[in-house]
Every structure is written in C-alpha cells, then in structure tokens.
Design a protein around this nucleic acid. Structure first.
Lengths: 339, 339
DNA sequence: TTCAGGAGTGTTACCGTTCCCAAACGCGGC
DNA sequence: GCCGCGTTTGGGAACGGTAACACTCCTGAA
C-alpha cells in the first residue's frame, strides 16, 4: 500500500529539462534572465514530474517560512473565531499558511510561550488576537526580528501596531439611539473591568450621556457571558425607573432579556435593550436584538494587511500604525420609545 | 534597533561545550549513549547561548515538520471552533503545532487544494473538520504518505478514520425525553438534507417514534440557522396539534422559540422544544433550552489521539478506526408535560 | 593476554533549496 | 579581429540539522 512514489526534486526536473538545478530555481523564483524557451522546457518538466518545491529546504536558506502565526484566546467564541477566519482568508491569498497557538489565559507567561513556539517554527510574523494589555506586553518582549500585530484589543496607546474596532463610537451610537427615542437615560451592563474594550464602551456610553446632560447610572462590571447579564438584569428589572439598557455585548443582552422577561417587564414596550457584536442569531432573540455590529472578519483581514505592510515596509514609520474599524448600529425590535 | 543578535546554532553550542555538534544533537534527541557529565555541559551551553534548534533544518532531513494540518469549514461557528480548540490543545501537549487551511465550501476541489497547501508545508498529518462526504472523498485522493482523520461527519461507512458524535442516539434521547413526558408524538425541524449529521438525527428521531408506536410527522429539511427554524416554527405554530418539537440544533431551536412566541404559543406550557449542541448561552434562551450536549472539544482531542495512533501504528489495522462519542441530554426549562 | 562488545564521541555525507561567482555566449563598436 | 558588456547558464558553497559509520576507550570472559 505504501507505494514508493519517488518525490521529484529540483535535480530531477533539471535533468529532465536538460538544464542545471540553478536554472530550475530561477524559473521558480521568476528571475528575469531566463530564456523563454528554457523556461517553458523547465515548466513542462515540472508539470510532468508533478514537482513541488520543498518548503523546508527553502525556509532553511531564506529564513522565510511563508507561515504566519496567530496567538488566539477564547477562539471558540464568535468574535475571535471570525477574526481567525478573516486572517486565514487573507493570508491564503497572500501566499501564507497560518499556524495557531492558543493561550489558556491572558497572563504574560503563556503568551511568551506561544511566541516561542511560533518562533521555533520560524513564522514570518505574528498576529495576536489580544484583548488585554498583558498580551501586547508579552509581544513586546518578542525577539526583534519578529513582526507582530495585535488585533481586537486596546487602542493607540500600545507600542505595537494594532487593529481595533472603535468601541467608544459604537457605544455612543447605541446610547444616542436610545436617547433619541426619548429615554431620559440609559443603563449599562458592562464587560469585565480589566478589558480595554469594555472600558472603551463604558467611556463611549458615558460620553454620550454627558453630552445629552443625562444622569450616568452606576455600573457593575462583571463578565462577558449571558449569566452575567442575567444577574445584572434581575437587578435592573426591579428598578421601575429603568427604561433603556445598553449591554456590552450580545451574550450579556441575552441574559438581560431573560431577566426582564421573567420579571414581567416587556421588551421593547417597557424597557429597550441594545447589544454589541451582532452575533449570528441575535436577530432571532426575543425580541430581535438591536445591536452594534462589529465586522470581525474585516478586522482580521485588516490586521493581516497591516502585518504584511509592516513586514515589507522599510521601517520608516517611527511609531506603530493603528487601524480603527468603525462599527455600525443595527436597529431591530428590542428598542422603542418609552411609554 | 534591529540589533544583530547572532542566533546560536548547533556548532556554537558544540564549541562552547567542547564537543562535536553530533554530541549536541544526541543530547537534544535524548540519545542514551551520552555521558551524564557531557550532557550537562551541553545543556549548560545551550542555556547560556539561548540555543533553539532550527526546525526547518530538522524537517529537511527527517521529513517530519512536527506540524499538523487542519482543514476547517465554517470555523466561525461554535462547533467547529471548539473542535479546533480541542485539537490545538491536544496537539500542543503532544509537541505539534497546528496549521489551518479553511475551505469556503465543501466541494472536492477546494478540499484538494487545501490538502495540497498543507502538504507543501510538509505537515505530518491532517485532521479534517469534515461534515460532508465530499471532504472525505477529497481526503482519499490525498497522497498516501499523508495520514488523515475526519472529525464530525458521517459514520462507519467512511474509508477514512473518523471521530464523530452519535447523532442517532442523541436524537433518540431527545425524542424519548419528550415522549416520556407524555407527548403523543414529536415534530422535527431537520438540518440540511445533504448533511450526514442531519440524516442521522432524523434517523434517531424516527426510530424513537417508531419504537413508541407514535406517528412520524413529515419533515422539511432546510438549513442550520435560526432563520430556518423561524420559518418552520411559524408553520408548526399554526398547527394546534403540535405539542413537542425536536430541533436539529440550538440555532434552529432559537428560531422556533421566536416563532412560537410570536404566535402566542407558550413554551413549555403549550409546546415543548428541544435543541441539539448546547451552545454557550442556550441556557439563557426564553425559556432556557433543553438540549443534547455535544462535547466538541472532546471530539477534537479524540481526533488528535486517533491521528497520532494512526501515525505511530504499524498499519496493522486493515479497516480504518472509527471513534464515536456519546452525547448527553441536558434538561432545562423548555420541556414539560403536555396539558 | 587477548579479544569481543558496548558505551561514548567525532567525521563525514546528505537532505533540497538559494546565493555567489565565474564561465560561455551573443553582439555592437572601435 | 578584439574588446567590453549584458544576457543566459552552470558549478560550487552555504543553510543547520540528522544518519551512518568509524574510532577510541573500557569492561569482562575465554
């Protein structure tokens, strides 16, 4: 069964085409100084031998593996998974393969280990799906010959090139939408306190309230999941004055919706709810969720573009580049004017 | 900034330790015939030079890249993403890095291209997150020197080693749960007709109904998403005789729940609903969803184990191995006895 | 004392590319 | 006819490891 199918190497192609291995290499690398006729003969030989070049040998001498590394966290969730998808898609068309190194938690240690693992495999660059500062800190300790980009985390303060969503603007859009409907103020169920993205959303929300002269209700930052939204939703449901809730993401919103429903407060008639992310099925929540859409795949693609520029560019930029993607408000059935 | 930090190679370590490079190699590969004292000297030298071996060179000569390839489809969804996670986790502890090649659709052509891409990068084996037969067919055309495993697709009929969930049993569990509550029969909102997993769930559901002597309502296979569930849910909601619905996955169930709610049919008082998958927040649907849990991460881990066995094993097994994981019923608030 | 055999180490070849340099070739101008 | 120069080609030498083999000790049995 394990038939000997002798893999053709450059030498075989050269012999068949009647040239030297060096000429074959030139054809492969599209060197200009090869006679057209010779080139065709070589290409023919490669075709007939089903030749494919040995990437390991190539990597050994060029020090370029044509592989990119991704450091990922909680990639089972829709957001990170979509970014990964976007990155892979763009990487493929750019001729790169992507390797992934996942980290269990966002301490610096595991991140450094991940960088190390990727470096050992000679990746040409690294994209970190990096929601917390510890990750970028870890990245900074990476050997200087590695190009790194962080995606989906904090903003311009970082010393590493970043791609991120404009969380503050997104939060502002959501809050202003609710205020414009006539709500006197907007409550917020925040994400974890140590996540910059959560902080930025808080800032955008607060900013919108301040501009409108509305009171800023207290927040109790917790977690990103539905349970957290449910618990805080129960608290909000007891407060009759609450008519509008902006949730830090859709999962939290799902929990809030359930809490409100169980407390007998109707959405959107009595309370309006807005989420953040636009997960695949949030249009089928009860009621369909008004939310702020993040284009995760686009985020991923952008980060790849940035990485490639960074790798190609002659280091002219003194400060790292920062790309920001603007989110979009999707109005569905969970928001309405207060009674 | 781009400081010359000369990377240490084996020769440097050898010189510092006062041995030959071959001895260094032996230490690295844990050859038995190295004197303890020499070994320590070498390790010390490696430490002080921050030596790490060049994987490309190693790959070139051993033909083992210590990299595994994943072929993934729709990896933005929770299921595939979790499998990916499980695979990576297990691969890391086994000393492998994983590279991913995603396919846009499940035709044979893109799958072959993905295999090719991975092969070019000299992966030692491939795991395909492969829900449709076309993928395994593509895998079969892969060069014989590549070890492949398919996860999450069809069953024992495949000519490739597979890891899969026992969909029929899962569907049976769900259906029997509803019958045991006293429902006279159970309706089913199926997944796409060309997905083996959807077929297996249909078979399990039908089997349970037949055993109980219940009538088997017609099915209209469509898609895996909430929209599809919503559309079919509207149809079911109009039919007063429908008291129990088993959905092919949680997303479909979400759509069904919305349709029932909008039609004024209360869940679970009037209609019971069961899902499949146990997505992260299905416990916070309205009402919390009774569902069949798949342990996706476990599926991923198992597939890696199978692949490694397959790679190590001396090809003694004539027929490919098939591993089946049993799902578990999670009872929550969306099911109750009929009135 | 000799010799087999194994432990410990070094020497050399080789994996399949790319890079550096030199050689062969064609061609126009003096 | 010779020289200079650009194009095309080939012959080595890397790249950084591992494998095969040879060699030196050392031990224990004949």
């Amino acid at each position: 069964m394990a038939s000997k199918k002798p893999v053709a190497v450059m030498r075989d192609v050269a012999k068949l085409a009647g040239v030297s291995h060096q000429t074959v290499s030139r054809v492969l690398n599209e060197h200009p100084n090869v006679r057209q006729e010779t080139r065709e003969r070589v290409l023919e030989a490669m075709e007939s031998l089903d030749y494919r070049r040995n990437l390991a040998a190539r990597t050994l001498v060029t020090r370029q593996s044509h592989t990119l590394g991704i450091i990922g966290f909680e990639t089972t969730l829709f957001g990170p998974a979509s970014m990964l998808y976007g990155i892979e898609d763009a990487a493929r068309t750019a001729g790169y393969l992507v390797s992934i190194a996942m980290v269990r938690n966002l301490d610096r240690r595991p991140v450094l280990e991940a960088v190390d693992r990727l470096r050992q495999h000679a990746v040409d660059g690294i994209i970190a799906i990096a929601p917390k500062p510890a990750v970028t800190n870890g990245l900074l300790q990476a050997p200087s010959d590695l190009y790194c980009v962080a995606v989906g985390g904090a903003g311009e303060t970082e010393a590493v090139p970043t791609v991120r969503i404009d969380n503050a603007t997104g939060a502002r859009l959501a809050t202003e939408h609710l205020l414009a409907l006539g709500h006197s103020t907007v409550h917020h169920v925040a994400g974890p306190a140590d996540w910059p993205e959560a902080q930025e959303r808080i800032a955008g929300w607060r900013d919108a309230l301040n501009r409108a002269g509305a009171v800023v209700p207290p927040i109790v930052p917790q977690s990103w999941n539905a349970e957290s939204g449910y618990l805080q939703g129960q608290r909000l449901a007891r407060d009759e004055s609450v008519t509008a809730v902006f949730c830090a993401n859709d999962r939290i919103a799902l929990g809030v919706l359930r809490a409100l429903h169980e407390a007998g407060r109707r959405v959107p008639e009595e309370v309006s709810v807005v989420g953040f992310d636009d997960m695949p099925d949030s249009g089928y929540f009860l009621p369909p969720l008004t939310t702020v859409r993040q284009d995760f795949a686009e985020l991923g693609r952008r980060s790849l573009t940035l990485l490639l520029e960074h790798m190609a560019g002659p280091d002219d930029a003194e400060s790292p580049a920062h790309v920001t993607v603007t989110p979009e408000l999707i109005v569905r059935g969970s928001t309405a004017a207060p009674r």
